[in-house]
Amino acid sequence: MVSPAVRAAIDEEIAKMPEKRGALLAALRLVQEERGHLCAETIQEVAEIFELHPAEVMEVVRFYNHFHERPQGRHQVNVCTSLSCALRGGRGLLRQIQAHLGIRAGQTTEDGRISLGHEECLGACGNAPMLRIDDAYHLDLDWLRTQQLLDGLE
């Protein structure tokens, strides 16, 4: 069940928008922050709040990269692999991270610590290569710094 606190936050988002559905993305984000991912039951609950068919909510969930239907690691590490970063070693960095963690992009470490991914340009091309850990950007990386960042994750 969506907790009362999250439900209240969703209602607040709904109140801001001219139409209820306008708050759907915000609601999915809030629910995912609480639950870690959006399983079928959760999607159905959100669909009920928004008076939508769950297929319509599923469609939205699967369109956007940030929504996950499966459990994720405690931290999301996403490496930018778009051109400006690639030119400055972004893809090499991803390869090194994969080797270091023993997983491929799209996977989660066995201890559930890190889900690794690669993303398209994150709007920090002037500080390439870069990656995103959860909500924070880490810029102008080299392997040493990256390794420290990864190893520092709980």
Binding site: I43, H53, P54, A55, E56, M58, E59, F63
Partner: peptide, 22 residues
């Protein structure tokens, strides 16, 4: 007006699907 079908994913991964159990 029953809404069972959806197009999920983007680009050339797009597929027609139903929601599990619906």
């Amino acid at each position: 007006a029953t809404n069972e079908l959806a197009v999920t994913q983007r680009g050339d991964r797009s597929t027609i699907e139903t929601f599990p159990g619906k």
